[in-house]
């Protein structure tokens, strides 16, 4: 069943009623789990993920199996970023059984691990490991983007120094690879149905800059459309960063209000001249 592109060209509305440049609702929270060093919960539309960060900490004598890159732990000078993803059986429509060695999950893990290892200041924590475990509760497209965003938030919550937020979102194109549609529009933040039918890519950028941290494209897309998709995706990442930043600020201000953290010198109170 192809996506009803004729309907799109009439109203310029997508299957879920969004325009081409609209993100889905993003709702996020940090510090959802008191026992962890850092934790977050993030919804991008109906994609819902949960993240728990433990560390940086030095693993004991018996080292558990870790996956992912970003430098090895142990005696290395940089902290290792170990990512573990669990996709709940009830998260998607078809109850797919995914083993531990699932290639798809392994790829997600190493992508996230490398993206975060590039942004986190791992050199401050020699011999240690940052354990990031992600749980997918519900899937509706843009899974990798949601995972990256949730992991970033949890790392901020854990107080791990980083260069900037790694914010991610997806971008697609309104017509399939084969259709030689000249007027194909780029689409921001694809849901599951769009991901099934249309070419798309996941892009993550480092903060406000245009520096791309992750770019994953698993579908065939015409090269002429790539630039438009990428531009839309990078713009979307900036919006996502604003949303993530707001979540962190609101939580921080709330903590100051509750007196958990004493108020410091605000940037305005300080004469920086």
């Amino acid at each position: 069943m192809p996506l009803d592109t004729s309907a799109y060209s009439l109203a310029l509305l997508r299957v879920d009623g969004r325009r081409w440049n609209e993100l889905r609702r993003i709702h996020a929270q940090i510090r959802t789990q008191a026992a962890a060093d850092g934790s977050s919960y993030l919804e991008m539309g109906h994609t819902k993920v949960m993240c728990v960060v433990n560390g940086p900490s030095e693993p004991g004598p018996r080292r558990g199996a870790t996956s992912g890159g970003g430098g090895g732990g142990g005696q290395s000078k940089n902290a290792e970023v170990a990512v573990n993803i669990v996709i709940a059986g009830f998260s998607s429509v078809d109850r797919k059984r995914r083993g531990r060695g699932d290639k798809h999950i392994l790829e997600l893990q190493s992508t996230i691990s490398q993206a975060l290892a590039a942004s986190l200041h791992t050199h401050l924590f020699p011999h240690s490991t940052i354990n990031i475990s992600l749980h997918v509760l519900s899937q509706d497209g843009s899974l990798l983007a949601a995972l990256i965003n949730a992991a970033t938030l949890a790392c901020v919550d854990a107080g791990i120094p980083m260069t900037d937020y790694v914010a991610a979102c997806t971008a697609g194109s309104t017509s399939t690879y084969a259709a030689n549609d000249e007027g194909a529009d780029p689409l921001l933040d694809m849901n599951h149905q769009e991901e099934q039918e249309l070419p798309g890519l996941t892009v993550a950028t480092l903060g406000d800059s245009d520096r791309v941290a992750v770019l994953v494209c698993e579908s065939r897309v015409q090269v002429s459309r790539l630039e438009g998709m990428l531009a839309v995706g990078v713009d979307g990442c900036k919006q996502v960063r604003e949303i993530l930043d707001r979540v962190v600020r609101e939580k921080g201000i709330k903590m100051i209000q509750e007196g958990t953290v004493e108020r410091g010198v605000g940037l305005n109170d300080m004469e920086l001249d």
């Binding site: 901020v156 260069t163 937020y165 921080g252 201000i253 100051i256 108020r263 410091g264």
Partner: peptide
């Protein structure tokens, strides 16, 4: 939340 300015805290980046 409005009573404490947004600048009371800083965020990464």
């Amino acid at each position: 939340i409005n009573s404490i300015p947004r600048s009371a805290i800083v965020t990464p980046g």
